[in-house]
């Protein structure tokens, strides 16, 4: 990535009462990228996000947004941030529209047209004049998104954004995030406990544990691992197992339920298939088994619970 990062966390540390909550964390976020933020319960995700938006002060280190130091140039840097921190808490006794007017006034110059446009974008036109009290969780999420993008920020932080959305809503939301990232070059930072969601939504994933960043990598990363696990469903498991042993020697192979699990390079899978057929074994299925993000995550964090 040659572009300048929109957000830079430089060695940020947060201590509360002598306890180190965030330990020397550095992270760059680039325009047009959707970055996922994962970590077990209490790892410091929310604290990190709070420091990125100035709700909490860093003990040491620097948060830079759009080239400005958050500490010294709060107004200029925060003007480029849109956020939902945890649940989108709104003024329940006001309508969705009044809530947006409220946030627009805080943001500065935002026209009525812009508010209308955003309401349309998040699909709340029919209910925007109802009190937020009467909104479902999904509608509140939509309103939360609306207030976050009202001022067209360069950087969008979303904490558990799909919580409460139905499958269609989640899909729509995902498409929308991808769209503003690619078309408008917005840098998006999403924390979620739904690992499969993060996998579908994000270009990059940052994993935090006990206040330390333990991994940053692209979602496609696991494909680069040349060896993959393939599951073969064959007519004669024992014979097939013997054939693999004889022909490939040191390869990992095991019988899992009614399938044979073999770790191979891509080209080898075709060869194995050919040998099976030549030896009179019928092959019903060959499934490349990709390690899920969840499995990787659990490996990395030592099986701690994720939220």
């Amino acid at each position: 990535m040659n572009e300048q990062p929109v957000v830079q966390l430089k060695n940020i540390t947060k201590k509360i009462g002598g306890k180190t909550i965030i330990d020397d964390l550095s992270l760059d976020l680039y325009p047009g990228q959707v970055t996922g933020f994962l970590g077990p319960n209490g790892a410091g995700k929310t604290t990190t996000i709070r420091m990125m938006v100035g709700l909490m002060k860093v003990t040491s280190g620097e948060v830079m947004i759009d080239g400005y130091k958050l500490k010294d140039n709060y107004r200029k840097s925060i003007a480029q941030v849109g956020a939902i921190v945890e649940n989108p808490e709104m003024y329940k006794f006001m309508s969705g529209y009044q809530n947006l007017v409220h946030f627009a006034r805080l943001q500065g110059n935002i026209s009525k047209e812009r508010i209308k446009e955003v309401v349309k974008q998040v699909g709340l036109e029919s209910r925007i004049h109802d009190k937020v009290q009467a909104y479902s969780l999904g509608m509140r999420q939509r309103l939360g998104l609306a207030q976050a993008i009202l001022h067209k920020p360069k950087f969008l932080i979303l904490d558990e954004p799909t919580n409460g959305l139905d499958p269609a809503g989640i899909r729509e939301f995902r498409m929308y995030l991808r769209k503003i990232a690619t078309e408008d070059g917005v840098s998006v930072f999403v924390s979620s406990h739904l690992l499969s969601e993060i996998e579908l939504m994000c270009d990059r994933i940052a994993i935090i544990q006990q206040g330390k960043l333990i991994s940053i990598r692209s979602v496609q990363g696991s494909d680069q691992d040349k060896r993959k696990t393939f599951l073969f469903k064959v007519s004669d498991k024992e014979k097939a197992w013997q054939i693999v042993r004889d022909n490939f020697g040191d390869i990992e192979v095991e019988v899992v339920n009614d399938r044979l699990m073999i770790k191979l390079e891509k080209e080898q899978s075709a060869k194995v298939n050919r040998i099976f057929i030549e030896s009179g074994i019928d092959v019903y299925e060959i499934i490349p088994h990709k390690k899920t993000l969840e499995e990787e995550f659990l490996e990395m964090t030592g099986g701690e619970q994720i939220v």
Partner: peptide, 14 residues
Amino acid sequence: AWGTIKLLTIRPVR
């Protein structure tokens, strides 16, 4: 109490 303090203070206003 409402939790709105977060959305209120992350704005370009001191």
